[in-house]
């Protein structure tokens, strides 16, 4: 394995990790603060990507599409909360799984109907449409680096909001002892709505950022959602810091593991067999990681109480 390939894979891993973090951040808050399993959170990511496609077609400008997509993603999130999710907070996990599963089916199909089943894409913005030369013989698209930087900035901003502001304090308190927060006179429902809309917007942001990189298609959020759940289980539900560490960890394990497993298998079997078996085994790595974490530390690496 060459050094350039390693650098490339680390960057790809970071990029996946950052997108995972943007999805997992909202999910972990919704899950940690409200105890609500939202399978439909991946759909918010898909909606973000489709909004990018739609608005780019309308304006012809990626930045304008991004700016317009964020409030729309927020609105769609609040709409879903109002129509469906708020009736589910005090129900058992099973009803939540069923209802949000239904929302996934509906929205995936709706996107398929509105935009067709084919994969779509959005070109990256003009001013980022060039490549960096990292080392000799390795060009890396500036847009992908911009995604990593943007994700890290959002993470920083989120950390400031959570640790330095009043609403952040309420969210932290809500994640550990929601009943006590409610007893102290905080309108928990409104706090939930706030967290929910914000989480939906972050997932939408991830979708817009992902639109030029990944294929935009119905169901694109489903598999990432499962991985985002892996992230919040590893990180500890309700902990932004845990989600951040776990998202980068999962992103790196997934991309680096892909390469290392295939290289490792080549040592013990012939190359063509290794190329076939490798990807599947490396896809299992993050689930093995999650099973190990759940086994040794069921509350996750950074459970909310330990998070500060």
């Amino acid at each position: 394995m060459s050094l350039t390939l390693l650098i490339l894979q680390i960057l790809n891993g970071l990029q996946l990790g950052v997108i995972l973090f943007l999805i997992a951040a909202g999910l972990t808050l919704v899950f940690g603060v409200m105890g609500f399993i939202n399978l439909a959170h991946g759909v918010q990511y898909m909606l973000g990507a489709y909004l990018a496609v739609f608005l780019y077609g309308l304006t012809g400008n990626f930045v304008a599409a991004l700016v317009l997509a964020l409030p729309l993603a927020l609105l769609l999130g609040l709409l879903l909360e109002f129509l469906v999710f708020r009736h589910l907070y005090d129900r058992d996990h099973l009803s939540q799984v069923l209802a949000t599963f239904g929302v996934i089916l509906f929205l995936n199909e709706l996107m398929k109907m509105l935009f067709g089943p084919a994969t779509l894409s959005v070109p990256p913005p003009e001013f980022l449409n060039f490549s960096f030369k990292l080392v000799d013989g390795l060009l890396y698209p500036a847009y992908k680096l911009a995604v990593i930087v943007a994700g890290l900035l959002v993470a920083l901003g989120l950390w400031l909001v959570i640790t330095r502001t009043r609403i952040g304090m309420l969210i932290r308190a809500g994640a550990t002892t929601p009943d006590m927060v409610s007893a102290l006179g905080v309108d928990v429902r409104r706090l939930f709505l706030c967290v929910f809309g914000f989480g939906a917007m972050l997932a939408g942001f991830a979708g817009v950022m992902a639109a030029p990189i990944f294929a935009v298609e119905p169901g694109m959020g489903d598999n990432l959602l499962i991985v985002a759940f892996v992230v919040i289980i590893i990180g500890g539900a309700g902990s932004i810091r845990g989600a951040f560490v776990a998202a980068l960890l999962v992103g790196l394990v997934d991309t680096l593991g892909r390469m290392l497993v295939i290289d490792g298998l080549r040592l013990i079997m012939n190359p063509s067999a290794a190329n076939q078996v490798g990807p599947a085994i490396s896809s299992m790595l993050i689930y093995v990681l999650m099973a190990l974490v759940l086994f040794w530390r069921p509350q996750g690496l950074f459970a909310p109480k330990a998070a500060r």
Binding site: V84, Q96, L98, G102, V103, F106, N108, E109
Partner: peptide
């Protein structure tokens, strides 16, 4: 058909 089935599941759950 999932456009109909999805909301149906939501109603069942609720």
């Amino acid at each position: 058909w999932r456009l109909i089935f999805g909301p149906f599941l939501v109603l069942i759950a609720l």
